[in-house]
Amino acid sequence: MDGSGKQIIVPEGGRWGAEDRAKSVDAAAGLYGSVFGPSKSYDPARVRWITQMENILTQSYTEQASYDFKQGFLRLDGKNIFDEESFDKILKTLVGIANIRQGVRGYVLVGVADTEADAQRVSKLYGVDPIPFDRFFITGVEHEANALRKSLDDLFRELATKIKASALSEPLRDYVARNVKSVRYYDKTIFVFETCAQSEPSNFGGAFFIRHGNQLTEIPTTQYGDLFKRFLAGM
């Protein structure tokens, strides 16, 4: 590319019309096209998820009910113990999103701190350098796998096993287990839990939940009828 710009003529002033611009683009394509080709190492999922994750973070302002974020699976007390209660909360949140209405799809991203205080605590405990994006801080989960003396693959498999053995109702349990992802955001690994509304309301251990904004609420038994009617009406 060195010096090739001299061969691309750009008119001065305001005389650069649409036709001239098109000719310049075609000229550039002719100069560089021969050295480009399909990449054997191209990973479309990686590129897509960098963009999609940033879209999720941005859209969470206006669609708070469909997204949630967790800094990790460990409590920030330095004891390096897997927080089972927090993991159950993630699964309940997936239920709550799935119960919003028919057609809803949502995500819980683990490895993303939504407060600077949490990000600073992770940095202090594990020496992580979070990546800021808007109001979020991407911390990743590598440090947690290391603290648990596991590889990322081992941790991922353990999470999949926990989902399959969880109190999530079917068919949501199968959906979540099949669609949990380990994705890269630059040098950080994020675990992405995906949920989707099923043909009827989902539950966790027989309890039904729903998301209102970023709040998770258990639905009282007196409102079960309304919940099921809403799903039947959307079919």
Rank of each mutant, 00 (worst) to 15 (best):
G3V: 10
S4H: 08
G5R: 08
I9W: 14
I9V: 15
G13P: 03
G14V: 07
R15A: 12
E19A: 11
K23H: 09
A27S: 14
A29E: 01
L31E: 00
Y42A: 12
P44L: 12
R48W: 15
I50F: 14
T51R: 13
Q52K: 15
Q52M: 13
E54M: 15
L57A: 14
T62E: 04
Q64C: 10
F69E: 00
K70W: 14
G72D: 06
F73T: 08
L74F: 14
R75Y: 07
I81H: 02
D83V: 12
K92I: 06
L94A: 06
V95T: 09
I97Y: 09
R101T: 10
G106H: 03
V110D: 01
D114I: 05
T115Q: 03
D118A: 13
Q120N: 12
S123Y: 05
K124E: 07
Y126C: 02
G127H: 03
I131C: 04
F136V: 06
F137V: 03
I138R: 03
E142P: 03
A147N: 01
L148I: 11
R149S: 11
R149N: 11
K150H: 05
S151M: 05
R157T: 10
R157Y: 10
E158I: 13
T161W: 04
T161Q: 07
S169A: 14
D174G: 13
R178K: 15
N179D: 01
V180F: 14
V183F: 08
Y186N: 03
T189L: 05
T189D: 00
T195N: 07
C196Q: 10
Q198R: 08
S199I: 11
E200D: 02
F209Y: 15
I210S: 06
R211L: 07
G213K: 03
L216T: 11
T217F: 11
Q223A: 13
Y224G: 00
Y224S: 00
A233K: 14
A233D: 04
G234S: 10
